[in-house]
């Protein structure tokens, strides 16, 4: 015991050398472990950051339909002219005949178009002075069926999208909310008579008045 408590110089020197090496080895191991943990953490944080930023960016840039207005409207048939509360109308009493869906280059009768809205069409209207390339863009960007496109005098914006009981004023043909509006409201949940025809009606002429 006493012997080992005072070891000879050579052995002590050898042991401390070994200890030193061991310590150095441990320190090295610890260092590389820290580097590994640090690197992995950095990569994880980086990925989380990129994902977070992408999601945030996507959500904050997504067009919203917050500006869509909704209205309570009546839906009786009449052959008399109707005065509508909205421009263009989003519903209300209307002609017994509906407007055939499609692209119109001249204004259409409100009483016919409102009946098409009742059947689930989205009616896109534009100011008559909208540049031709914008009109072309509107024509190309809308689905082939259950859509009406027509010029309209006195709109509250360059382009207005309407569906039964709903309306959204748009900034132009490039407004990304148009696609969102069409996806939600074309044959959407607000439609009183979904699947009713958007063909076989009128190409623009009102039926004769009953009076």
């Amino acid at each position: 015991m006493s012997k080992s408590s005072r070891p000879q110089g050579g052995a002590r020197a050898g042991r401390s050398k070994v200890d030193e090496l061991r310590q150095a080895q441990r320190a090295k191991e610890r260092r590389s472990r820290f580097i590994l943990i640090g690197a992995v953490s950095a990569v994880v944080l980086l990925i989380a950051g990129i994902v977070g930023f992408t999601v945030y960016n996507d959500v904050s840039n997504r067009p919203t339909l917050d500006a869509v207005k909704t209205y309570e409207v009546t839906r009786d048939h009449t052959t008399d002219p109707v005065t509508y509360a909205q421009t263009p109308p989003v519903g209300g009493n209307h002609s017994p005949t509906w407007l055939n869906c499609g692209v119109y280059t001249e204004p259409v009768e409100n009483e016919l178009a409102v009946h098409a809205l009742e059947h689930g069409a989205v009616w896109v209207t534009y100011r008559p002075d909208l540049p031709a390339d914008q009109v072309e863009k509107l024509t190309e960007s809308i689905p082939d069926t259950y859509m009406v496109l027509s010029p309209y005098e006195g709109l509250p914006g360059p382009v207005v999208a309407s569906a039964w009981g709903t309306q959204l004023v748009l900034t132009g043909a490039d407004d990304r909310r148009l696609t969102e509006f069409i996806q939600k409201y074309r044959q959407g949940a607000q439609t009183p008579e979904p699947g009713a025809a958007c063909t076989g009606g009128s190409d623009g002429d009102l039926p004769p008045t009953s009076g």
Binding site: G120, P143, T179, I182, Q183, Q187, G188, G195
Partner: peptide, 22 residues
């Protein structure tokens, strides 16, 4: 075909999906 179209309409409603796709 009108009846079959109605079935398809009903499925989309039940699935909570828009009738108009993106």
């Amino acid at each position: 075909q009108q009846q079959q179209a109605g079935q398809m309409f009903g499925w989309l409603v039940q699935w909570g999906l828009n009738q108009t796709g993106s």
